[in-house]
Design a protein around this nucleic acid. Sequence first.
RNA 1: GUGCUUGUAGCUCAAUGGUUAGAGCGCCUGACUGUGACUCAGGAGGUUGUGGGUUCGAGACCCAUCAGGCACCCCA
Length: 431
Amino acid sequence: MSKVQNIKGMRDHLPQAMMLRQHIAATITGVCERHGFEPLQTPIIEYAEVLEGKLGDDESLIYRFEDHGGRRLALRYDQTVPLARVVAQYAGQITLPWRRYALGPSYRGERPARGRYREFYQADADIVGSSSPLADAEIIAILTEALSALGFPDFVTMLNHRQVIGGVARASGLDEASAGRVYRAIDKFDKIGADGVRDELLRGDVSPQAVAQILTLVQIDGAPTDVLQELSERLSGDERALAALANLRAIIGGLEQMGVPPERYKVTPRLARGLSYYTGLVFETATPHWPEGSLLGGGRYDELVGQFAGRPIPTVGLAFGIDRLHDVMEELNIGPRPATTAVAYVTVFGPEQAASSLELARELRAGGVNTLINLDGGGLGKQLKEADRKGVRYALVLGPDEVARGEVMIKDLRGGDQRAVPRGEVVAALG
RNA sequence: GUGCUUGUAGCUCAAUGGUUAGAGCGCCUGACUGUGACUCAGGAGGUUGUGGGUUCGAGACCCAUCAGGCACCCCA
């Protein structure tokens, strides 16, 4: 391993990518804080036993290792299990309901693909300790506000409820054991179509009658209230499903009252997600410009967070995939694309003027202008070229003439215009 | 984890198994001792991802490995 490279599925984020990533992070956390969410950060490494047993079947994706003392450790694979640990560990210090957000990396040893990496950053927002449908609605409102603020031109959040899916399976005459297979099949509906789902279910020994019933229920489409109405009629004998539909109705009522634009969400009975710990609402947000999968997802999981605390703590939340948002924004060419952090580049004309240039740089920084100063001398042409290549907007020239007159030459490198400005007005001129 | 595919200069890509692996863009120097982005002249830059093998001869063919992409599996 003498080769210089990073680990498969893990990426370096060079400055240009980082600036967009930080914009994404700041936008999301800004929306969260406007809703009064509080920040939380936990270690990337946890005791393996904290993370184990929360996934269901496949835990081979967890990165595990031992420390020097032989302790079994693991890298967190999401930020939800650490949240559950924190809620139990600091129960006395946390006032419920608790709105918290967390932004950081998680790790999964899966096969990398576009928009999917082994180290990935997520911004999680959860409301812990409330079962109100308003909490569910607030989570949807937050993601809608955040994606709008990021400039996504069109996106739709698909809403469903775990007990609606359960009701679909029950109405089809299937037992709970077959349900998992059914969920996985119908979750692929948008990808493989009705025929694909039919084939997969038939291959899985689901009866043709049940398949027909499932496909009918799952293809109900339209305005949220209409979808809910039709599902209520078709699932009228199933109390759990009816309760779930009432819950969705309440959540949608909350969305309306919160002013979430109606074109931004719909009820989609075929949305399943990996259902292992969701107990209520499930949702996914997609954009037509990204066929690879959803932008983000989440739902309500009333049992997981209380697992360490020893009692159910109803929680609803979501996770923004920073990497995927970044990839999609690059692809769609949305969001700011600054070349550098600096706005001004102060040239150093020569040894005589170095002190003036350094002082000017200090004034600019004190005035809030991000400023680069030339370090290695060279002709003015070379310095301007460096400024231009960095992508800095303004070059500031202080030659003997300017110093004598108490002025600074401001050159706009985007067009080429330049003008002399009195020394005291430089900050204002760049603002 | 399974299958397919790609890997050549900083970037995008050429090169029938056959001379010293090329081009565009970018980069460096100069024309330019107070002006970048345009123009002109010159220059640097390569263990063809890595390691084996076949062959008189391999960037090309074979095997392995690493990395990227795609389709499965999975997606907490």
